[in-house]
Design a protein around this nucleic acid. Structure first.
Lengths: 188, 188
DNA sequence: CGCCCCATGTAAGACGTTACATGATTGA
DNA sequence: TCAATCATGTAACGTCTTACATGGGGCG
């Protein structure tokens, strides 16, 4: 099954779902946009694609139409779509927040086209709840330990708290966006 | 030299600089605080400590005072202090921002005790400048591509922009903290 | 012809994760 | 004495990084 798909793997699945692409296309997307967070090196992308292919989540077909050398276009298999969908609709749990927010934001980024706006909204609400708990825990940790830290340490901690709080605000903003649309749709 | 020290390696160096500790102590610090971002598993920490020792950045001495089993306390060597200091005082460049902010915030967290408040302030100002450029580039990328993205993709992008902007605000707040102190010190 | 871009990959090595192993000490 | 906790590690595995390899096509 979809045991062990890395961030890069999910990023590739999401992009390929949006548009069938070759490894080179994908690499260019990574290196030319701020998605380069997920590695832009061929030594990461090509092996990742082959892993996904071995897991039957994508399938590559060779195209030689335009006289070029072999260009392998990857498309999602039904299993790939399913894997993306489960990933997108899984609720946010506490440990999703302990290792940075990029994975979750990536999940959200693809959620609408993969699973529809209702799923996006659910994901946001789940994130909102998890973040509230997370921020509360951070405040507790801060109150308990900030006197033991040097000033730069304390400020760094505050940076982490602010980061979470800013993400929470974004979450509320995004939820408002979706609710507005739902209401509009409901009044049709 | 200090070629190739991972985030975890620097986190360990910084903690050991603050207080000589055993691997177990360090593990507890990671697992009990929000520093668990830098891995809390023995399979990461002990090998990392030995790499640092092999590079002559730390040295472990076995203590058997309290009747316990062997407890190896690690201390920084002069080379270790130097490596931490160069890391802490290196200015922030664009690519430091492309793979998340945790490394930079970690650098800042240790900067005051390792290199003094003046170095902290310099680091913050360097970060401030790099962030301004980064945010501008993000806005350009957003303006160029937001119409091609689905709503969730656009919102995810906005999340990244907000994240950077929130970090910028924190930077300004932290700079103000340090300037206040410099002024106070200057008026002594 | 030489050079750069397309497009694909491989090889070596470093690092982290998970899971397991070991032995010594403390408390019930 | 048995279990839990202290304290240290190892082994297998997967993944990413860096650097290199290959081979065709277009262009000056």
């Amino acid at each position: 099954m979809q045991k062990g798909i890395s961030s890069l793997g999910y990023a590739l699945l999401g992009l390929v779902h949006g548009k069938p692409s070759s490894g080179y296309d994908l690499r260019k997307i990574f290196s030319s946009t701020s998605m380069k967070t997920y590695s832009d090196s061929p030594g990461a992308i090509y092996p990742a694609l082959r892993r996904l292919e071995r897991q039957d989540l994508i399938r590559g077909t060779i195209e030689k139409g335009s006289g070029l050398r072999h260009r392998q276009i990857f498309r999602l298999t039904p299993a790939g779509v399913a894997a993306l969908k489960t990933w997108n609709t899984r609720p946010v749990v506490a440990e999703d927040l302990t290792h940075g927010y990029e994975q979750i934001v990536l999940r959200f980024a693809f959620s609408e086209t993969v699973a529809g706006p209702a799923a996006s909204l659910e994901l946001l609400e789940s994130l909102h709840a998890a973040l509230k708990r997370h921020i509360q825990a951070l405040h507790q940790e801060f109150d308990a330990s900030h006197q033991l830290m040097p000033r730069s340490g304390r400020l760094a901690f505050e940076c982490g708290v602010r980061d979470s709080e800013s993400l929470l605000e974004w979450t509320e903003y995004a939820i408002a966006c979706y609710l507005k649309q739902v209401r509009k749709k409901g009044s049709d």
